[in-house]
């Protein structure tokens, strides 16, 4: 069974084909990297998966269910978590509160749930997610005042607190220091034990270290797909993306 599948997925912006007829499949448990030059349509593609953007054509299936018309918040409930490429957190709130909002979704699925969990449980779940990404010491800091790298980690922690089946990370290591990247790779490996990870990444070292398979996007289309070894030696990829002569 595939976890997630797309059929002819497309999104046009006034004639610009940002995503153009992509057929894509993701198996449960894998770490998949999406690479491609700037403007290839990677962010748009994962936004279509998460429901943040509506497709111009094509379909998205999650666990063999057609979720194309489903609003984003319901997809999150089904287990698709999305972290933004441009950090998007609650700047005025503390780290703990930021993650608590995410944790609350899982613990209290409806606004008027009959069995509401207590604030203590929400706080405990949020603290755990913070510790997993290494933000355990910064729980009461105001999120907007954190260093950039920490804000990126907070994004990831919010994704983790949802305990998703699929975690989509859009360029999570952008702007992180080497040691932070090390730490981040640890986090992703741990997450991957319980969730499928879809990772957009520019840093090829990270991709090579983490990915089970790689999909290459170019001009909104899938250029190639395969294991890291296959992709590195793929001529078309070399030509289009890695810049080496074919």
């Amino acid at each position: 069974m595939t976890l997630l599948r797309t059929k002819g997925l497309s999104r046009h912006f006034d004639g610009l084909k940002a995503v153009d007829g992509v057929d894509f499949a993701l198996d449960p448990g894998e770490i998949r990297a999406i690479i491609g030059p700037n403007g290839a349509g990677k962010s748009t593609f994962v936004s279509l998966l998460s429901g943040r953007i509506k497709p111009s054509a094509g379909q998205v299936f999650f666990e063999d269910r057609d979720v194309t018309g489903m609003p984003a918040h319901k997809r999150v409930r089904m287990g698709i978590a999305y972290t933004f490429q441009i950090t998007n957190i609650y700047g005025a709130m503390t780290v703990l509160e930021n993650i608590a909002i995410a944790a609350q979704n899982r613990l209290r699925p409806h606004l008027f749930s009959r069995k509401p969990v207590s604030e203590v449980e929400i706080a405990r779940a949020a603290t755990k997610a913070a510790q997993e990404v290494g933000l355990g010491d910064l729980l009461y800091e105001t999120a907007g005042t954190l260093a950039y790298g920490h804000q990126r980690l907070l994004e990831v922690a919010m994704g983790l607190a949802l305990q998703p089946k699929l975690l989509i990370l859009d360029e999570p290591t952008q702007g992180l220091s080497d040691s932070e990247i090390e730490n981040f790779q640890e986090v992703v490996r741990r997450v991957a034990q319980s969730a499928t990870v879809l990772l957009i990444e520019h840093n090829m070292d990270v991709v090579m270290a983490l990915a089970d398979r790689i999909t290459v996007l170019d001009n909104g289309r899938v250029l190639a797909e395969g294991s890291p070894g296959e992709i590195v030696h793929n001529d078309a990829v070399q030509a289009a993306y890695l810049g080496a002569p074919a």
Binding site: H73, N88, I89, Y90, A92, Q104, L162
Partner: peptide, 28 residues
Amino acid sequence: QGPLGRLFVAVRENEPRTQMLGFDTYAI
């Protein structure tokens, strides 16, 4: 001061983000 109030504030601070954390912000 409870979870519901936190969602109200979450909508005030950043509605698109709240949506992407799985909440129906219209309902909130």
